[in-house]
Design a protein around this nucleic acid. Structure first.
Lengths: 141, 141
DNA sequence: TTTTTTATCAGTAATCATTCCTATTAACGC
DNA sequence: GCGTTAATAGGAATGATTACTGATAAAAAA
């Protein structure tokens, strides 16, 4: 069937629209912050009290695959998710208050993007995170 | 006591020289690769058969704190360690064969390093990882 | 050297994030 | 509405890492 525009995952299954999935996407779209699976689970439970943590994880995986959200794994080994409506960016992570600020500047847009040629490497995704102290925490010290 | 050069951790405890710790550092120095805690555990067991996985984790933490090794957490959520003798660098990770190549070019050395001023942020550490296909795997496809 | 101190150890239990499993439920096409 | 099957709830299982405890062995003191 040409002209078939139904969303599908990598395994070819049609992606249905469910209340649970929509609720997860709503949370990430409205809050525009970097939430862990557990935080999303707690937030979604307000409107979907019977949702399970497994459902949250499965939907985060599907939404990431569809490109609707970004998945980031930080130094603490925990994955955090955010809406993809904001566009590609990187992160400034405060090691004191854990606040995460977005950084629109991207290393790949600079000369470093040429590394592909010199290293015979085909880049698909990249992550750039800076850890340090945000302005608020610097002034508290 | 001024001139006290005994290595100490952040909590002020003196760091002793033990066979177990030395063996872990030896592995990372000689192999010059990016090993997980489990891989290090298996390698160290050859010379220290009675070592425990807990000891490996504790020493990796101490050695990281002392600056003798680097700790990196990749997208799979698993931490990998490498000797610090090689100096600061970043990573090209092949999503097919999992091979990790080092990249000496650093975004912070470029204009992006100026983000500190514009974002009122004091950078201490940073990570830059590129995921894609290495030369070998590209030619296999 | 002997004794004392205490950082480190082995072994194991506990924790945390995440994935897997199974019977049941509910989107969506017809 | 009916049938197909993706998605769900609930919970068990996994894997990486951390925490606990009594024993051990470096370094310091005597």
């Amino acid at each position: 069937m040409p002209g078939d525009h139904k969303p599908k995952t990598a395994n070819g299954k049609i992606v249905r629209s469910t209340k649970q999935r929509q609720a997860i996407l709503d949370i990430l779209t409205k809050q525009q912050s970097h939430l862990s699976a557990e935080e999303i689970y707690q937030a979604v439970k307000i409107t979907q009290p019977r949702i399970s943590l497994g459902t949250v994880y499965r939907n985060l995986e599907i939404l990431t695959e569809l490109g609707s959200i970004y998945r980031n794994s930080f130094a603490d080994g925990k994955a955090r998710y955010e809406s993809a409506t904001i566009g590609h960016h990187h992160h400034l992570v405060c090691i004191n208050c854990q606040d995460i600020e977005n950084l629109t500047a991207c290393p790949m847009a600079q000369d470093i993007g040429n590394l592909a040629q010199s290293h015979d490497f085909e880049p698909l995704e990249h992550y750039f995170e800076v850890y340090g102290y945000c302005g608020k925490c610097r002034r508290k010290d």
